[in-house]
């Protein structure tokens, strides 16, 4: 379907910021092979590692959360992360489906 599932993640991001959290927005920007989610799928992460939403249905979430927390800690504004099955870490982040994906994370400020 070209219309996305109802998506209130951006509204949640605003609510988090208004309650004084630092927020990183993660967006799925590219997939190859059998990645399950559609481009534009989103997740938000705060400085403590709390998260909402999803970019992959569970495969790379843990890694994206860690990167999000790091981004806030290091005061960086954005980062592009490639997940590949051939990567040594692929099994640890669970990309066993053989897909590849790129996730863009950015601070909201």
């Amino acid at each position: 379907m070209t219309q996305p599932l109802i998506d209130t993640i951006l509204e949640e991001a605003i609510a988090w910021i208004e309650s004084d959290k630092q927020v990183v927005l993660a967006t799925l920007v590219q997939t190859w092979g059998s990645s399950p989610f559609q481009i534009g799928s989103k997740m938000i992460i705060d400085e403590k590692g709390n998260f909402l939403g999803s970019v992959s249905g569970g495969c790379v979430e843990t890694s994206v959360i860690t990167e999000g927390v790091e981004l806030i800690k290091n005061k960086n504004s954005f980062k592009k992360i490639d997940f590949k099955v051939s990567d040594e870490n692929a099994w640890s982040v669970g990309l066993a489906c053989g897909g590849e994906m790129t996730v863009f994370i950015e601070q909201i400020n």
Binding site: L10, E11, I14, I17, L25, E106, I108, N109
Partner: peptide
């Protein structure tokens, strides 16, 4: 992303 853009996206979506 700037929070102003985020707010604008939400407004346009709604």
């Amino acid at each position: 992303m700037k929070i102003e853009i985020l707010k604008e996206i939400i407004k346009k979506k709604s």
